[in-house]
Simulated assay, not measured.
Amino acid sequence: MNITTMTIIYTTIITGTLITLISSHWLLMWIGLELSMMSIIPVLMNKANPRSTEAATKYFLTQATASMILLMSIITTMMYSGQWSIIHSNNPIVSLALTLSLIMKLGLAPFHFWVTEVTQGTSLMSGMILLTWQKIAPLSILMQTTPTINQPLIISSALMSAFLGGWGGLNQTQLRKIMAYSSIAHMGWMLVVINFMPSISLFNLMLYIMLTISLFTAFYTNNNLTTLSLSHVWSTAPPTIIIILLNLLSLGGLPPLMGFSPKWIIIQELVKNNNIMIPVLMTMAALLSLYFYIRLTYSTTLTLFPTTNNTKTKWCLYNKKTVTILAPMTMLSTMTLPLTPLLLTLN
């Protein structure tokens, strides 16, 4: 892909998401989603092979189905209200269709199967865009239509996503699939609190994006695709081990890393609203995710595989892939837990 084509495609992806974020007109919001969806398909197929073509096809079919359901809810809202602006609707059909379409776009359970397959079939950078930037627009629509969405369906889907995201990643060896299941579990955490305080969901999304970008960038610098290749990072890029260790433990939500903060705030907010069983179940689901994060940490940092010579590190440690964003992203996503009281006051 040449530089002109790549610039046009990425500009369209960013423009589509921004149109969805700033518009108060249902049709413009839908058009922004479609722009973002259509423009990311060439990104998914950047390296032309049967796996990427299959992944792009699965992504297109799922997102097109969700877009049709969303358009049906938009037209139904316009028929009953007579206007295209975003307003609260008491119509159960509108509420159900809107919630289902956005759940499908975000890849939450029970419509989560496409996330792992599409992420596994693409490159690391394409998977990173899919799991980070493409989540912003649907989640912004959910935040703007919080009074309209079906609350029991959202909470049920969030709980299922947290558990299935943990269970699905337990026996995985492919790093892209592990990150996809991690995305499903974190989306569950974001949606379980969206009815009570959407700003907490936004805070969780921003932190999740920083953590995911840091991990994908660390994988990209050493071209790690499996846990086996990740276990050899200590002999080629020793500093990367610390970055991967911090980001994985932060994703798992262990203090004193920053990933502990959103889980703590979400549990606190749910308890404030007299929900006791939901945070208990979400905490149990978080332990499942924490297990495969610690498994990755163990294979990366606590094992030394036998070498054929007397040296423990490879003689050539020079890596041509220099990513300047890795260090600041790691610092922001792991070392900023003391700023949590300030974030709470902003909410």
Rank of each mutant, 00 (worst) to 15 (best):
I41G: 03
I41Y: 04
P42V: 08
P42L: 10
L44Y: 11
M45T: 14
M45A: 14
M45G: 00
M45F: 04
A48R: 12
A48K: 14
N49Y: 00
N49S: 00
R51S: 13
S52T: 11
S52N: 05
T53V: 09
T53Q: 10
T53F: 11
E54Q: 12
E54F: 07
A55P: 04
A55T: 08
A56K: 05
A56I: 08
A56Q: 04
Y59T: 07
L61S: 05
T62L: 07
T62D: 01
T65F: 10
A66M: 04
S67E: 10
S67A: 15
M68V: 15
M68F: 12
I69R: 08
L70V: 02
L71F: 12
L71W: 03
L71E: 04
S73I: 00
S73L: 00
S73N: 02
I74N: 03
I75K: 08
I75M: 14
I75R: 07
T76K: 13
T76N: 09
T77D: 06
T77N: 15
T77Q: 12
T77W: 03
M78V: 11
S81F: 03
G82V: 08
G82Y: 01
Q83F: 07
W84P: 08
W84E: 09
W84R: 05
W84G: 08
S85C: 03
I86K: 10
I87N: 14
I87S: 14
N90D: 15
N90V: 09
N90F: 10
N90H: 14
N90A: 15
N90W: 02
N90R: 09
N91I: 08
P92S: 09
P92D: 03
I93N: 08
I93Y: 08
V94D: 01
V94N: 00
V94H: 02
S95R: 15
S95P: 03
S95F: 06
S95N: 15
